[in-house]
C-alpha cells in the first residue's frame, strides 16, 4: 500500500493539474447506446488521475435519478433505444443531454441501418456535442466544463 500511495503522490505532482477557478458541479450519467467501447475508455480516463474531472465538480453518478447530464455514446441501436428513453425519463429537471463521440453525433460509419434507431439527436434533445473518435479525455473535459459555465 505504501508503495502504491507513494506512486500516486508522484503521479499527482507530475500531472500538476491546476485547481479550477469556477465552482459548481454536475452529476453525469453515462449510457452506452451502441458504442465500440472506445468512448467509454476515454470517459473513464477523464475521471482518472491524469485528468481528474472531479476537480471541476464533474462526477459520474450511478443512477439517472441523480443526474444532471445524460452522456450518450454510440449510434443508438434498436435494442438500446428503449433503455435510453427510460433513463432520460427518469432524470429530474433541469436535465441536459450530451452526445459523446462521432457515432453519437451520427458522423461515423454506423453499421447496418436496420439495426440503428438513429443518431442521439433524432431521439433526445441534445445540448452538448463532443466530437472525436473517440474524443480524448482532454476534449471531453473541455466540453463538459462549457456546460458547467452555462
Amino acid at each position: 500500500m505504501f508503495v502504491l500511495l507513494r506512486q500516486l503522490q508522484r503521479i499527482r505532482s507530475e500531472c500538476a493539474l491546476p485547481r479550477p477557478a469556477r465552482r459548481g458541479s454536475l452529476q453525469l450519467r453515462h449510457v452506452d447506446a451502441g458504442s465500440c467501447n472506445g468512448c467509454e475508455h476515454e470517459l473513464q480516463a477523464a475521471s482518472g488521475p491524469a485528468y481528474d474531472l472531479a476537480r471541476f465538480g464533474l462526477s459520474i453518478t450511478a443512477s439517472p435519478r441523480h443526474a444532471d447530464v445524460l452522456l450518450v455514446t454510440g449510434a443508438v441501436t434498436t435494442r438500446m433505444r428503449g433503455a435510453l428513453e427510460i433513463a432520460y425519463a427518469a432524470m429530474p429537471e433541469p436535465r441536459r443531454v450530451a452526445a459523446l463521440g462521432d457515432c453519437a453525433l451520427g458522423c461515423g460509419l454506423l453499421g447496418d441501418p436496420s439495426q440503428i434507431a438513429g443518431r442521439v439527436e433524432e431521439i433526445l434533445p441534445v445540448d452538448l456535442r463532443i466530437p472525436g473518435c473517440p474524443p480524448d479525455p482532454e476534449t471531453i473535459a473541455r466540453h463538459l466544463r462549457e456546460l458547467l459555465a452555462r
Binding site: N37, R79, M80, L109, D112
Partner: peptide, 27 residues
C-alpha cells in the same frame, strides 16, 4: 444490445473499405 450489424454492413465493400467497418466492432 449494441448490435450494429457491422458484418452485414461490411458486405459488398472492397476490403480496404470494409476494414474500418470491422474495426468499429471494438475500440
Amino acid at each position: 444490445h449494441t448490435h450494429r450489424g457491422l458484418e452485414h454492413a461490411a458486405e459488398g465493400l472492397a476490403p480496404d473499405e470494409a476494414l474500418p467497418v470491422v474495426r468499429r466492432a471494438c475500440g
